[in-house]
Design a protein around this nucleic acid. Sequence first.
DNA 1: ATCTACATATAGACAGCCTACATGTAGACT
DNA 2: AGTCTACATGTAGGCTGTCTATATGTAGAT
Lengths: 111, 111
Amino acid sequence: MNPDALRGHMDALLLSVLEREPLHGYAIIEALQERSGGALSVPTGTVYPALRRLERIGHLSSEWATVGGRRRRTYRLTESGRKQLEGERSAWREFTSVIGSVLRAEASGPA
Amino acid sequence: MNPDALRGHMDALLLSVLEREPLHGYAIIEALQERSGGALSVPTGTVYPALRRLERIGHLSSEWATVGGRRRRTYRLTESGRKQLEGERSAWREFTSVIGSVLRAEASGPA
DNA sequence: ATCTACATATAGACAGCCTACATGTAGACT
DNA sequence: AGTCTACATGTAGGCTGTCTATATGTAGAT
């Protein structure tokens, strides 16, 4: 998966994976792998900053927990985050529809 | 259409629009508008540099023409460009499939 | 004269994803 | 005791491609 292709869709992925339950960063990375059938290996250097950004703009909230001696920061969707996810989903549909319509255009000549 | 979303898909769009016939930059922008039903307004500052980049790496070739007193640089797909377009198309299918599978995952709780 | 459409081009800003690195705990295995 | 892997978070800096803004010029309509 070409990294550049993810540009602008990372938020949708993160919000989507947090929709059903709160998760910490490491678990989010695993969830993305699972849900994508192993195709998505998002590096920590992408996920952690993105989560912080999403929290900063109010789409996520977080709290620390210690489980088995390890510190976790668990993120959950805020109300704003749920609305944003809705928006991301419809933006995704529009995006694929628009790009798809260009890519699938018949290669038949003019006239 | 969020500009960031285009990242990494611009090449596919440009190659695709040049598949059926050679076009110059301005006409490419119009063709993208038409094919997308008006949804794609790609600025000249994006298209012209991108076309040059694609020519530099061998996917396009170009030649100057003068039509109605105006200078045009007409681009056409090279053989390499056609192969690249094939690759872009299958990458697009994979991309939409992977992201889609994450976004569409059921929001039902675990167990 | 002025305006719009046609037509190309570059400089610099911006943003976000990536690589690489740093830090630390827990448990298994030798 | 030492090593290795999995778990877990985080930052600095690089890269690159898209965008905004600007520049230049022709043709035709008003």
